[in-house]
Nucleic acid binder design. Structure first.
Lengths: 113, 113
DNA sequence: AATATATATCGCAAATATACGATGAATGAT
DNA sequence: ATCATTCATCGTATATTTGCGATATATATT
């Protein structure tokens, strides 16, 4: 019974995992890259770049939004998405620090060989 | 029909996503932290630290192994797990660079407000 | 040899994710 | 007012993930 046990973990671990999970699909990595590269907000151009149906891209965008990495507004017929920089900077930095902390454990380790 | 379309993405995006996905669960974040902190390889001590059944922890370890972030050897009755530093350093660095690249896109952006 | 211990694996159930086409809602163009 | 365009959402099918208990396996211990 796949009960959600995630609330039993530390808040930081949950937050880090949510960030990682949001980026845990190549489509969403690609979307973030596209959003970062273009100088204006993007709409359905993302759909053209990705090898996925429009509805599927929409779902991926929703997930990135839910994770706080992206925000979107409607401008006429189109929807305008862009990176939620405040959140992205905060969480990606947190993640980077966590990775660096893990890395600090390397030192004296010679094991599992 | 959930066909696997992942092979249609760029290799780098796939690799980054696999790394992120592997860390996309608080249990696996916690495991990596524990492995990094201890000075010897850990076995079932991980089970004691996590709020999950032994079999579930074993599965999470398998996933980290499959993603190349962890390696394990058998030593007697116990299993010894530790971080696969070569791989971890390479992929986490790749991921860090990708995040930094995304970050470079911030500049002139004032949108979606 | 018999028993205990540690861990992996199997089998299962439920939840979540992935993907698409079809449809709906809102806006822009004619 | 009608039609076209853009995007979100719904419904659905399938795949994957998450989780557990039960069982199997391999090594210590007695």
């Amino acid at each position: 019974m796949a009960i959600n046990k995630k609330s039993l973990f530390e808040d930081e671990d949950i937050e880090l995992a949510e960030f990682a999970k949001a980026l845990g699909h190549p489509a969403r990595i690609a979307i973030m890259k596209v959003l970062a590269q273009r100088n204006e907000c993007i709409c359905g151009e993302i759909v053209e770049v990705l090898p996925l149906a429009q509805s599927t891209v929409s779902q991926h965008l929703m997930e990135l939004k839910k994770a706080g990495l992206v925000k979107g507004t409607v401008s006429g017929v189109r929807s305008c998405y862009c990176i939620n920089w405040d959140n992205f900077k905060r969480i990606s930095s947190l993640f980077g620090v966590a990775m660096k902390d893990i890395h600090l454990g390397e030192e004296t380790k010679i094991c599992c060989d």
